[in-house]
Amino acid sequence: MDFAFLATQMVSGFSLATLLFLNASGLTLIFGVGRIFNFAHGSFYMLGAYFGYQVSAVWGLPFWPAILVAGAAAGIVGSASEYLFLRRIYGRPHEGGFQILLTYCLILIFDDLVKMIWGSEYKSIAKPPGFLGAVQVGDVFIPTYNLAIIAVGLLVVLAAWWILSRTRAGRIARASAVDREILGCLGVNVPLTLTVVFGLATALGGMTGALAAPLRSVTPGAGIEIIIDSLIVVVLGGMGNFWGAWFGAILLGEVNAFAVAFVPEWSSLFSYIVMVLTLIFRPEGLFAPARIRKA
């Protein structure tokens, strides 16, 4: 087991972690701000992949703008879903159960819509020109497209940090997580805030789907396949904790990468072990700030 291999495996883990984080970031954002558990988050990831396919492979728009268009389109569908459906169940007793059922229905509906529009064949988006090969650092080999994804991930982390902690919109979003009623009394349009945040979160999901499409297969049902891993990341990081999701994703990515290298036959087990241990010993998440932990 030489050093170059360990380094390669670490980079593999990091690349996996970035997509995991991008998937999970929207999920945790909407949970943090609106206390909404969007089980259908994966469906927006899938919609983003299909929108990306439509815009870049069918209409011929260049790759990077196509990713943004796909994200925006998924965000619009997301806002519409919140406005038309989710908004009607806010504040009900046992709201959580209704949320899960309603968003689960959305998964089934989006899956069938996608099948009706694009058919059930696997779709694919080509990697953008200039990102087909790999760079070599010593003996470590990293595909340039994976590097690009890691860069986009870091960019999203920075942008989200700036928006959430340095802008008025970000402060409102954080405040609505703490107390919606008081925020409303202060003259903030809380329902609109939730719709916008939901749109942003699903846009993140959609962008991730389009970004992952050159590496994965675009099929109906793709949403339900990624939701479990995203959930693990969100739990590790602490439900609703944006930064926690980033660390949680890195932890999970690296655990996976080294489990594959050392105990390949049992590799899929380890992410679940990490999640179970977290749920038992640190249910508020591994990366929850100290004051939440005490409370």
């Binding site: 994965r216 036959e265 590799s267 899929s268």
Partner: peptide, 17 residues
């Protein structure tokens, strides 16, 4: 021998290994 779960979306670590 590697046995990733069915529908595993990301094979990066398997590939490098």
């Amino acid at each position: 021998k590697y046995l990733p779960k069915l529908y595993e979306p990301d094979y990066t670590s398997f590939i490098t290994s």
